[in-house]
Amino acid sequence: MHQPRRRDRRLARRVSSRPDRRPAFRVPAVGADVVLVGYFSAKQKDFEALMASAAAALAAHGARVVAQIVQRRGVSDGGARMMSLPYSSRTLLTYGKVREVALACDRADADAVIFTASLSERQRRTLTDMLGRPAVSLSDILTAEARLRLDRIQAGP
């Protein structure tokens, strides 16, 4: 006979019963080697200054930037309305740029890859798998460090 259709079957597979609570990445130790990756629109002319300030912020947190790679989104690929969008929703970068980042990481034996742009959880997982080392955004590191400092202050001496 006819069996009733299970309507929520696919939804149950997609939605996890418990939230993903991974701890935010912290620079593992003073002197950790990281590769800094920037993603900028062609409209953004001061990207070099932004990369320099990101490298200085990482140095203040104990990391050593061993390579800097920039991905520019130009007008020629999709027009002006596409400039603020990533090249790939999975990786943020083009496939060739991901290979370039992986090669730089292998050459420098980097501990992590830090992106100046914010990464979604899917992008973070995909890039971590592709690069073989943690891939995180700079904002995640800075907010985690600020949270840690705030917890120390609230705990008191």
Rank of each mutant, 00 (worst) to 15 (best):
L36E: 01
L36K: 01
V37E: 04
V37T: 07
G38I: 03
G38M: 05
G38H: 07
G38Q: 08
Y39V: 15
Y39R: 11
Y39T: 11
F40A: 05
A42C: 08
K43G: 15
K43T: 15
Q44S: 00
Q44C: 05
K45L: 14
D46G: 06
F47L: 14
E48P: 02
A49C: 06
A49F: 13
M51I: 09
A52R: 13
A52P: 03
S53Y: 07
S53L: 10
A54T: 07
A54P: 05
A55N: 11
A55V: 11
A56K: 15
A57G: 02
A57N: 04
L58R: 02
A59I: 08
H61K: 13
H61L: 15
H61Y: 09
G62W: 09
A63I: 05
A63V: 08
R64M: 09
R64T: 13
R64K: 15
V65Y: 11
V65D: 10
A67L: 06
I69F: 07
V70A: 15
V70Q: 15
Q71N: 07
Q71H: 13
R72A: 13
R72Y: 12
R73L: 10
R73M: 08
R73H: 14
G74F: 13
G74A: 09
V75Y: 15
V75G: 07
V75K: 13
G79H: 13
G79S: 11
A80C: 03
A80H: 04
R81S: 12
R81Y: 03
R81P: 01
S84C: 08
L85P: 02
L85Y: 12
L85F: 13
P86K: 05
Y87L: 12
Y87S: 14
S89I: 06
T91A: 05
L93Y: 00
T94H: 08
T94K: 14
Y95E: 14
Y95W: 04
G96C: 03
G96R: 14
K97V: 01
V98T: 03
R99G: 07
A102M: 03
A102P: 00
A102G: 15
A102S: 10
L103M: 01
A104V: 01
A104K: 05
A104T: 00
C105R: 02
D106K: 12
D106R: 13
D109L: 08
A110G: 07
A112T: 04
A112W: 02
V113F: 11
I114D: 04
F115S: 02
T116H: 02
T116K: 02
T116W: 01
A117I: 10
A117W: 08
A117P: 08
S118N: 15
S118E: 14
L119N: 07
L119S: 08
L119H: 06
S120M: 11
R122C: 00
Q123C: 06
R124Y: 04
R124I: 03
R125K: 15
R125F: 10
R125I: 12
T126Y: 10
L127I: 06
T128C: 04
T128Y: 03
D129V: 10
M130T: 03
G132I: 01
G132Y: 02
R133M: 07
P134A: 07
A135C: 06
A135S: 09
A135Y: 01
V136A: 01
V136T: 05
V136D: 00
D140W: 05
L142V: 09
T143F: 05
T143H: 00
A144V: 02
E145N: 09
E145P: 00
